[in-house]
Simulated scan of single mutants.
Amino acid sequence: MACSLLVWARGWRGAEVSMIVDVDLLILLSLACFICLLTSIVGLSGSLLNSRPILALYTFLLWPCLVSKLVVGYISYKRANFRLDRKLNMVWSRYLTNLDRLRIQENLQCCGYYSPLHQATFSRMCYPRTNLPGCKGPLFAAESLSLRRLYRATFSLVFVHLVNILVSLLCSNHVNVNFGKGLTPRRYRLNGTHVEINAAGAMRELDDLDEYRRRSMKRQLGLGLANMDRDEALRHHQERESLHYSSS
């Protein structure tokens, strides 16, 4: 989309030639970019809202995007590799106006098609005795370069787009209200070291608890023996007192 907008805005020197000769391809490219941008907005909205219907619409819109990219890539590939010179001859002689020829001549620094005497639009730089070459060679080189870049970039994006379609189809049944929610932050995630440390701490606590239980049992046992001794001493004291009262 950025490149198509720069071409419409004449962002570089060869953009003028592309706007005149490949205006139909430029329109198709702009439409494909608009469809892809609309589809990306729909997909982003569905991801942010966790909406399965919106994401289903996004998956459906990926197919028109693929078709539009294939159309642009096929037309540019066919135009660049199947008799481009004859196509340029026909365009120059039948479809271009004098103003279009003048703009191409000023942009490519040439005059006429084969020579300044062949279908030229005369100006201060283009006249019958000028030293400027014909526009066939520069126009062919510029068109071949721009078309080659266009279909290579388009076909390279097609493979990425196919991966996107595959991922969207695989993930279409995994999106619900809880999608992406409740994930533990990375700093709080456990690993093997954390598990070993926690296990060692738990073992120490169990050992401390067993030691506490043993000490408690010993303490209770000691208290029980002390109580038995005290009861026995009290019983002996009571027996002696009863004997003393009986004797008296």
Rank of each mutant, 00 (worst) to 15 (best):
Y77H: 13
N164R: 08
V167E: 13
L57Y: 03
Q119G: 07
D207Y: 09
S146N: 10
L70K: 10
M203I: 12
Y77S: 13
K181G: 05
H237R: 13
R230G: 12
A153T: 15
N131D: 15
S45Y: 11
G201T: 14
C65H: 05
N176T: 10
T193Q: 08
M125G: 07
L234H: 08
T39L: 05
H118Q: 13
S248R: 12
Y212P: 06
L243A: 14
N50D: 07
W63L: 14
Y95W: 05
G137L: 15
R235E: 12
E196F: 05
C110I: 00
T193E: 12
L169I: 10
I165K: 04
A2D: 11
A202M: 11
C111D: 02
T121W: 12
Y188H: 12
N227S: 15
R213P: 04
N178L: 15
L162C: 13
V158P: 02
R52D: 02
S246C: 01
W63C: 07
V91Q: 12
Y77P: 04
E241G: 08
L170G: 04
Y245W: 01
N164P: 03
Q119S: 13
H174S: 10
N198C: 11
L157F: 11
E239I: 01
N50Y: 06
A120G: 00
L209E: 01
V23G: 06
L221C: 06
A226Q: 12
F140W: 12
A32L: 03
A80L: 06
